[in-house]
């Protein structure tokens, strides 16, 4: 009888080596909140090799440089939800972390795992798109850095090869006069997978009267998280105007391609995505104005 192989990696290099050795049958175990649920509900190929990365200390911290936040891939959702640095520079990510799952899952689930699982309903991913995050991926052929959108290619699909692992998420620190926000809708307020989500980062002009730069991402409404470029283009450089934001948020419905599933119908997702987009933009704008931070 063949059993699943379990290997524990002590360093990133060790993990990559073990992944390479296991070939196509390798899977990475981090927090296990997706992987093990899958193991419990489907039969597992006995030739699977699990490489556990939960004891690699170098990828468990949130660090900052002058211009960037460096988030280790083993950083848990709880760490993101509680970190003052994340709160200061990446509000959307913190809000997404706080609204994700429940305390027990947040304690185990990791940011790297959320990305690698590549669910279109991954709340952290939506926020990372809006924050223009990049990801460092390490494999036997070396280390590469790519945009979050380049990693995620479809529903639960990534461009990662079997011997690659995510080690770090890089988030540019927001400039003064800039804030980000996240909002989701689900069946209840906790322990719920998003039926739809939106995140944005808005930078206001120095006089705080117009929108200088904006990024808008929508989750759970297409095979991957998508940018609402139409909304961004329609608002960039425009004076802040509640009605205008409300009107152009409707453009978000054009880039999504929602399905009907157990969480919501296609119709509902199309109706509610513009509302979430509008809410997050207005929330971000009001936070900049409240902070009074002038660039």
């Amino acid at each position: 009888m063949q059993y699943i192989t379990y290997l524990k990696a002590n360093t990133v290099e060790d993990a990559v080596g073990k992944l390479h050795g296991a070939g196509d049958n390798a899977v990475i175990l981090a927090g296990g909140t997706d992987l093990l649920v899958g193991f419990n509900s489907h039969s597992v190929d006995p030739s699977t090799t699990i490489v556990y990365i939960g004891e690699i200390e170098t990828i468990k911290a949130i660090k900052e440089t002058e211009a960037e936040l460096l988030v280790g891939s083993m950083v848990t959702t709880t760490q993101l939800a509680e970190s003052p640095v994340i709160g200061r520079y990446a509000g959307a990510l913190q809000q997404a972390a706080q609204e994700s799952a429940g305390p027990q899952v947040r304690n185990r689930a990791t940011i790297g795992g959320n990305i690698a699982t590549a669910s279109p309903a991954g709340d952290l991913i939506t926020a990372l798109y809006a924050l223009d995050a990049s990801v460092t991926v390490v494999g036997t052929s070396g280390s590469v850095r790519m945009k979050i959108g380049e990693i995620i290619t479809g529903v639960k699909r990534t461009s990662l090869s079997k011997d690659q692992m995510i080690t770090e998420i890089i988030i540019p620190k927001k400039s003064p006069g800039s804030e980000s926000a996240f909002e989701k809708i689900g069946k209840r307020k906790a322990m719920t997978i998003s039926a739809a989500s939106a995140a944005c980062q808005v930078t206001l002009s120095k006089d705080q009267k117009s929108i200088a730069e904006i990024k808008v991402a929508v989750g759970a409404a297409a095979p991957t998280v998508v940018f609402a470029h139409g909304v961004e283009d329609a608002l960039r450089g425009r004076a802040i105007d509640d009605q205008l934001v409300k009107d152009v948020s409707k453009l978000a419905a054009e880039v999504i391609n929602p399905i009907t599933d157990q969480r919501a119908t296609k119709w509902y997702r199309q109706e509610v995505v513009p509302v979430l987009v509008y809410n997050t933009i207005m929330k971000a704008i009001s936070q900049v104005q409240k902070a009074g931070g002038v660039a």
Partner: peptide, 24 residues
């Protein structure tokens, strides 16, 4: 009735049968 009807659509898991949490 939806053309996108997913035949697996029904709360077959307790995770999709959303009882209220304390936050609700």
């Amino acid at each position: 009735e939806s053309p996108d009807f997913n035949p697996n659509f029904r709360p077959i898991n307790i995770s999709d049968y959303a009882i209220a949490t304390t936050l609700d």
